[in-house]
C-alpha cells in the first residue's frame, strides 16, 4: 500500500501520540480537518497495509529498568545476511534487527541487533547465544552498550530546520 497525502498528514498528526482523551480519534480528526470515522478507517487501512507496524503503547525501556541496552553489529557477507537476519529475528530477546549500509574503512559492519535487558551479564549471555547457536560467531563483530541517552522521542517528519548559530 502507498499512503496518500491525507494518510501522511494523519501520520504526522499522531507522531507525538494520540491525545489521552476519551475520544482521541475525534480530537485528531478536528486537528486535521477530517471526520472521526475517516480517521479510524484510514488508520485501520494503514495498519492492514503494513505502513503502521503497530498501534498501541510505546514504552521507554530505560525508565522501566531495562538499562543494559546493547547494539550488536556483525560483518556478514552480503550473500548470507538475509538468511542470517531471518534466523536472528526469531529470537525473542532481539528487539530490533536489520541490515544497514557499510562505510569502510571506518565502519565495516552491516548487520545490527538491538537487545534491551535489565542486566548486562544476561545481555552478554544472549549475545553468546546468537554467536554460538545462531551461527554468528564466525563473523567480525562489536558490542556497543549505551551509556547516556541524550534524546528519545517519536519521529518528527517535517520539522523546521534548527536555526543557525551565529
Amino acid at each position: 500500500m502507498i499512503p496518500d497525502r491525507i494518510d501522511k498528514l494523519l501520520l504526522r498528526a499522531i507522531a507525538d501520540g494520540l491525545p489521552l482523551v476519551s475520544r482521541p480519534y475525534a480530537a485528531v480528526a478536528a486537528r486535521v480537518g477530517l471526520g472521526e470515522d475517516e480517521v479510524i478507517s484510514r488508520l485501520r487501512r494503514l495498519v492492514e497495509g503494513g505502513i503502521i507496524k503497530r498501534l498501541g503503547v510505546i514504552v521507554r525501556h530505560h525508565e522501566l529498568g531495562y538499562r543494559a541496552n546493547a547494539m550488536v553489529v556483525w560483518d556478514v557477507p552480503d550473500g548470507e545476511v538475509t538468511e542470517v537476519g531471518r534466523r536472528v529475528a526469531a529470537y525473542p530477546f532481539v528487539t530490533l534487527c536489520y541490515r544497514r549500509t557499510r562505510r569502510p574503512p571506518d565502519w565495516r559492519f552491516n548487520f545490527y541487533c538491538m537487545i534491551h535487558g535489565k542486566d548486562r551479564a544476561v545481555v552478554l549471555r544472549q549475545i553468546a547465544v546468537l554467536n554460538w547457536q545462531a551461527g554468528l560467531a564466525r563473523y567480525p563483530q562489536a558490542v556497543l552498550f549505551s551509556r547516556r541517552r541524550f534524546k528519545q522521542r517519536g519521529a518528527c517528519f517535517d520539522a523546521a530546520p534548527a536555526r543557525e548559530v551565529a
Binding site: K8, L11, D16, I51, I52, K53, V57, I58, A155, D158
Partner: peptide, 15 residues
C-alpha cells in the same frame, strides 16, 4: 515509562 500511545511507522514510508 510510556513514550506515547501511538503508531510505529514502517521506516522510510513517510519521510
Amino acid at each position: 515509562m510510556v513514550s506515547r500511545v501511538g503508531a510505529v511507522i514502517q521506516p522510510n514510508t513517510i519521510g
